[in-house]
Computed example of a mutant assay.
Amino acid sequence: MGILVALLVLSVLIFFHELGHFTAARFFGVQIDVFSIGFGKRLWTKKIGKTEWSISAIPLGGYVRMKGQDDTDPTKVSYDEDSYNTKKPWQRIVILLAGPFANFLMAFLLYLAIAYMGVPKLLPYVDKVTKDSPAYQAGLQKKDKILQINGINIRFWEDIGKQINASQGKLTMIIERDHHLKTLTLKPKVIEDKNVFGEMVKRRIIGITPLPKQTTVIYGFTEGWKYAWDETVKASTLIFKSVQKLITGEVSTDQLGGIITIVDVTAQASHAGILALFFFTALISVNLGVLNLMPIPALDGGHIMFNLYEMLRGKAPSENVMYYMTVTGWVLLAGLMFLGIYNDIHRLMG
């Protein structure tokens, strides 16, 4: 069941991405020949107007084929009035940006739904205090509630780490214990630890773990929009940095995941509940948006690059250049896909 949910999630995200292209193309009067969810053999096709709507056998992608635009053969062009090729470069760029924009919008709407459904957050209660740690030496105890750090109010457990790492020198901490307030002073310990990218970084700790005591925060109308915006920006920044670090070699390519990992983790998220599924679906949606903006021929980012070239030079790249760069892009994408699948299999085998 989890795998079916994962495939459904991927299909919905792909549909929204292609719907973005479709909507912008139709706005500028471009004819859409095919709107397909999936690749390979068509399992279902219905022609509505001049567009063939299809569901294909391999649900690992999708495409919108506009008149005069074919990634499999960039030399197939059309100069009819309703063709993609006859539109101005800036119009084509808008059409290309509409797909990734739809993914970012989808993520925003999912985060907005999460905000109104209620976001689970850990309360700032202490569970374990590591022996001989700064917290232990300062007298922090189990079930203490941390109220303030250096004059900044603490509402949730996540606020504690932020304030510890944002501070310099010693900390002045106000806690609640047995309905009484106490003031503690302690100096965090600096350690080396791995960040989300697997890099070694320095961070400040005091040696405590959270008590599994949480609340659900339901945001108001305007606060929900801010939460959704912040989470979308945070996820986008994380993905952009991940891609950048992969390209520069700061993060090893063995960290790259493929379709098997995506399906596996999405299936797990579906078992964990609707909130977990929404969180992970939003992250995948942002991932699709960011990756499609990469300047690789055959991706939206590559086509945007070609159109920017045309805007600056006043003429499009030659058909030979377009053809060979597109073929190179497909080879690169295939290599990345196989690398991701190889890493997936390697992880599954332990």
Score class of each variant (00 low, 15 high):
residue 235 A to S: 10
residue 345 I to A: 10
residue 10 L to R: 04
residue 254 D to E: 15
residue 276 A to L: 03
residue 170 K to M: 12
residue 50 K to N: 15
residue 310 E to R: 11
residue 123 L to Q: 02
residue 215 T to I: 07
residue 83 S to Q: 11
residue 228 A to Y: 09
residue 340 G to L: 11
residue 309 Y to F: 13
residue 293 L to M: 13
residue 146 I to G: 02
residue 26 R to D: 10
residue 51 T to K: 08
residue 323 Y to D: 00
residue 274 I to T: 14
residue 152 I to A: 11
residue 282 A to F: 06
residue 150 N to I: 06
residue 192 E to Q: 14
residue 71 D to V: 14
residue 31 Q to D: 15
residue 63 Y to W: 07
residue 292 N to L: 06
residue 279 F to Y: 13
residue 275 L to I: 15
residue 219 Y to G: 07
residue 74 P to A: 04
residue 297 P to N: 09
residue 216 T to R: 06
residue 212 P to V: 03
residue 141 Q to D: 01
residue 27 F to Y: 15
residue 5 V to A: 07
residue 71 D to L: 14
residue 59 P to D: 05
residue 175 I to P: 09
residue 255 Q to P: 05
residue 226 K to Q: 12
residue 11 S to D: 05
residue 46 K to A: 08
residue 203 R to D: 01
residue 164 I to V: 15
residue 186 L to R: 03
residue 308 L to W: 00
residue 200 M to Q: 15
residue 253 T to G: 14
residue 189 K to H: 08
residue 290 V to S: 06
residue 238 L to S: 09
residue 269 A to F: 01
residue 170 K to T: 14
residue 293 L to G: 09
residue 278 F to S: 01
residue 94 V to M: 14
residue 345 I to F: 14
residue 272 A to R: 12
residue 189 K to P: 00
residue 151 G to Q: 04
residue 82 D to W: 00
residue 13 L to T: 03
residue 318 S to D: 02
residue 350 G to T: 08
residue 91 Q to V: 12
residue 344 D to S: 10
residue 113 A to I: 10
residue 69 Q to F: 11
residue 280 F to M: 02
residue 10 L to K: 03
residue 39 F to C: 07
residue 320 N to K: 14
residue 9 V to M: 04
residue 165 N to T: 06
residue 85 N to G: 10
residue 123 L to S: 00
residue 149 I to G: 07
residue 55 I to A: 08
residue 125 Y to Q: 00
residue 72 T to R: 14
residue 25 A to N: 10
residue 41 K to Y: 13
residue 59 P to S: 07
residue 47 K to N: 13
residue 263 V to D: 04
residue 15 F to R: 08
residue 17 H to E: 05
residue 40 G to V: 05
residue 208 I to W: 10
residue 165 N to E: 01
residue 30 V to D: 05
residue 166 A to T: 06
residue 95 I to L: 12
residue 211 L to E: 13
residue 212 P to W: 03
residue 299 L to R: 04
residue 186 L to N: 03
residue 190 V to N: 14
residue 245 K to P: 02
residue 215 T to K: 01
residue 134 P to A: 04
residue 37 I to K: 01
residue 130 T to F: 13
residue 160 I to V: 07
residue 138 A to S: 13
residue 84 Y to R: 12
residue 78 S to D: 13
residue 232 T to M: 05
residue 139 G to W: 08
residue 36 S to N: 05
residue 37 I to N: 03
residue 205 I to D: 07
residue 335 G to M: 13
residue 17 H to L: 04
residue 52 E to C: 05
residue 211 L to G: 03
residue 268 Q to P: 06
residue 252 S to L: 09
residue 319 E to P: 10
residue 20 G to E: 03
residue 258 G to R: 06
residue 228 A to C: 12
residue 13 L to G: 05
residue 36 S to Q: 06
residue 288 L to Y: 02
residue 130 T to K: 11
residue 248 T to V: 08
residue 228 A to P: 05
residue 148 Q to P: 01
residue 273 G to C: 09
residue 139 G to V: 04
residue 348 L to Y: 13
